[in-house]
Design a binder for these strands. Sequence first.
RNA 1: GCACGAGUAGCUCAGUGGUAGAGCGGCUGUCUUACACACAGUUGGUCAGGAGUUCGAAUCUCUUCUCGUGUACCA
Length: 889
Amino acid sequence: MTELPKAYEPTVVEEKWQNRWLSEGCFNADPQSDKPAYSIVIPPPNVTGVLHMGHVLNNTIQDILVRRARQEGKEVLWLPGTDHAGIATQARVEKELAKENPPRTRYDVGRTDFMKMVWEWKDKHGGIIINQLKRLGCSCDWERERFTMDDVYAPEVARVFTELFKEGLIYRGRRMVNWDPVLRTALSDEEVIMTPSKSKLYTIRYKLADGSGQLLVSTTRPETIMADVAVAVNPKDPRFGHLVGKTVIRPLVETEIPIIADEHVEIEFGTGALKITPAHDRTDFEVGTKHNLEIIDVLTADGHINCPDCPELHGLDRFVARDKSIELIEAKGLLEKVEDYENNVGMSERSHVPIEPRLSMQWFLKYPCVKEAAEAVANGDIVFRPAHWAKTYAHWLEGIQDWCISRQLWWGHRIPVWYRKDKADELQEAAKLDEADAAAGDIYVGVEPPADPENWVQDEDALDTWFSSWLWPFATMDAECRAKFYPTCDLVTGPDIIFFWVARMIMAGYRFADGKPFSNVFFTSIVRDLQGRKMSKSLGNSPDPLDLIAHYGADGLRFGLMRIAPTGTDVKFDEKQIEEGKNFANKLYNAARFRMMQGEADSVAPVFTSVHIDILSKLKELHVTVADALSKYEFNTYTQALYSFFWNEYCSLFLEAVKNDLREGDPAVKNATLHTIDTVLRHYLALLSPIMPHITEELWQSLGFAARNEGKPLMSTPLPSAEHLLAGLSDTHISKARALSTALYDTANRARNLKAEYNLATNKKVRFVVKPSLPVDDDLMSRLALLAGAQSATAEPDYEAPKGTPTALTPFGELFLPLDGLVDVEAERSRISKELEKITKEIAKSNAKLSNASFVDRAPAAVVDQERARLVEWETKKAQLEAMLTALA
RNA sequence: GCACGAGUAGCUCAGUGGUAGAGCGGCUGUCUUACACACAGUUGGUCAGGAGUUCGAAUCUCUUCUCGUGUACCA
C-alpha cells in the first residue's frame, strides 16, 4: 500500500476532479431524459464581476441542491451564465479610454466602435467569475452557458419589448425621472438609495411685489431658485390666506412669481411657505402641472447650472453653485437664517452621487401580470424561504410604479424602436408616444430592423439591464429545454434583489412563459464582516474567496461557510469558521486513510456486535436527518448532522472502540468491523458529497467504492439506500445494542474523568474494575479499557475495593480505579459527597415538581412519567452513593 | 413614520412549550502508530430589561431598550 501524506492537500485533488467531471460530461443535462426534471437557473453574475462571499454562499447552496437531486435520480439542469451589466461594464471600458494619452471618451470613439470595444473587452476579460465558480466546484451545465446579450437571448428581449409595446404597456413619455448626473442616464426607483445626509436648511426672504412685506421660504436647494415659478402656501393656513393671488419677487433672476394655494404644503413645516420648482423636484412638478405653471430647467445633464440670466452661477457645478447662490442672496440681504438639517437624499446606487429629479423623455413599462405575481406568492404556488420575505414582496407590489426602462447608455440592448427620418425631430419632442403612433406609421417597433432602414432612425437609448434579466428563467432555454425544465424548481438568491429581479421574473414568467418561473425561492443570508458591515470593495473587508480556496480548499470553504450561514438571517463572516471546514476535510481524509491501512474485508457475512449495530443504526438515522433537512432547505441542520455524526459518533466513539479489533483478536470480529467501516464510509461519503464534492469523490475512488460500480464517479452514482442497513435485525435487538453502546461510552467517559481527577495522563496505563449492575461481557470490557486508555478493565462482581479507592457510578455499575499507594480516604469522601449533593438537589427539584398537583393533573402523561422515571433514577444513584460513603467509613 | 428581522457562553451560531447546546477561544494534560488541521479533561450563560399567559417560557402575548434591513417621506 502506498504511503499517503498525513494531511489532506486539496489543491491538486480539487482541480483533478473538476477536470474529470467536465470531461465526462457529468454536469450536462439531457432534455430527452425520461427521469424527473430538476432545474435551477443561476442568478447571473455581472460579466465584469469577481467572486465574492455572497456568490460563494449562494452557489454552494445551489450546488448542494443539484448534486443531491442527481443522487436522487433526477435529470438535473443547472443553467449558468452572466449578465451584461450595462452600467458596470460600460464604465469599465470608459475607464480604459480615460487612461489613454490623450484621454478619450465614448463620444470620441463613437457608438459603433465603442460597442465593438466593449465586446472585445468582454471576450477578453469578461467571465472571470465563471472560472472562479468552476474552482468552487459548481456543477453547472457549462455547455449551456448564456449571456444576456448573446444572439439567442437578445431577440427574446426585443420580442418582449415589442409585445408589451403592442399591448400598450410600454410607452414613451416626458416625465420626472431619477437622473444620475455622473453617468448621465435615467435610473429606476430601485436604483436610488435614500441616504440620511447632513445638509443646511436656508430660509430666504421673498419680497412681495407690491412692497407690502415679505414671505419667508425655506429650502435645501437654493441653487435652483432661478427655476422657481411660484411660492405655495396651504389654503387652510390662516397666516397666508390673504396673500394668495399676490406675487413675490424671485430672489435670483428677479421676476414676479405668483403665490398659490396648494394642499400639498404642510402648515407645520418650516415657514409654511414652499417654493415651487417644477423642473427639479418631483412633487413640485405635480403641483406645477396642477396649476399649469411654467417649467424652467436650470441644470444640465451633468449637473451644472444652465442659466445664462444668472451669469454668476451659470456653468458652475451644482454643489459649488449652492454655496455661491447663498452668497448672492445674502449680498442682497435676503438671507434670513441657515440651520443644520438632516434629510434623506437619493443617491445613485451606481455612481454614489445624489440623483437629480429631472424631466426627460424616457420609456416606461406598466408592469404586466402584477395580480398573478402577487397571488402566486400569497397562495403558496411560489414558496419564499424564509417566509417573511413574502410580506416585503407583497408590499412592493401594492405600491408598484411604472418602470423606467430606458437608459442613456450604449452598452446594452438598444431599444427596438425606429422613428421615420422625416418625422424624427418632431417625435422626439412629443409628450407621449405609444401604439397609436406605431399604427399611424410614424414609428416602427420590432425584433428586426425595418425593411427600409435608410428611412428610419433608431432610438438612441438602451434598456435597463434588468429588462433583460427578468426573462432569464426562460430566455436562456430553447424550446426543447423549456419543455423539460421550465418552470425551474428552486431559485437561490439574495434578498437585496427581491424587487430588481425576483418579482420581475415572476411577472415575466406569467406574461411570457405560461406560468411561474420557479416553485421555491430561497433567500440567502447576507455575508457581513465581524463588525456587521456589509462586505464591499471600498471597505476592503471582503476576503477573496480564491485566497480562501487556496488556504482551505474549495470543500473547506463550502463546508465552513455553510456551517454558519444558512438559516436566512445575516451572518458575520469569520475566517476561523472556514478553517473548521478545512480541519473537517482533514479529519475525513485521515479517517479514510486509516481504513486504507487495514486491508480488505472478507466476503464472509459479518456478525455484528453492539457497537457495530449502534453506528449503523445512527447512520440510518443520518440518512433520515439529511433527507429531511434538505427537503426543508435547512442547510444548517444538514451540515451539523453530517459534522457531528462523523466526528463525534464515528471517529471519537465508534472508531476508538473498535481499533483493537483491527490489530489483534478474533478474525470474525475484525471482519465485522471492516464491513461496518466500509458501509459507514460508503454511505457517508455519498451523503456528504453534495457539500464537499471533491474530497468525497477522491476518497470514493481511493477506498475502492468506484471500482465496484464500473469506475463511475461518486457524483454520478445514485445515493445508497438506507433500507438495507441492519436489515434482518429486530428493533429490540437494535435498541438493546444501542443502549449497551451508550452505556459503554458513558462509562468510558466516567473512567476518563476519574483519571483526569487524579492527574493521570491520558496515556497512563491504569486498571479499572467494574462491579457490574447489569450483565457485561468481555467484549464490552475490552472496549471500555481501550476507550479509557487503560491497560485493562475487568468485571468483578465480588470486588472489595481498598478503602479510599477512587470510584464513580456508571451505567455499568460501580467503577473503581485502584491506585496502589495513592489512597486518600478524605479526598474520596469529599468527591462522593459533592456528587451526592448535586443529586440531592436534583431530587428535591424533581420532588417539588411531582408534588405540584397542577403539574401532575395538567401536564401530558408522558411528561409526568418521564419526570417520575428521572426521580427513580436519581434516587437509585443516591442510594448507591450513600453506600459508597458508608464503605469508606 | 410604517414594516420586517435580530439580541442565547469571551467569539461565531444552533435551539418554535418539558433538565440551556455546538464549534472556536481560555485553562490542564497528551506527539497514545488515521489525524497536533489531533486526542482527553475542564472552564464559560438571570437566554437584552420588564410584565403577562401557562402546571411549566429562550420558545407564546404585550411592552421598553439596542442593532440591522426594507419602505415612505416635508421644502
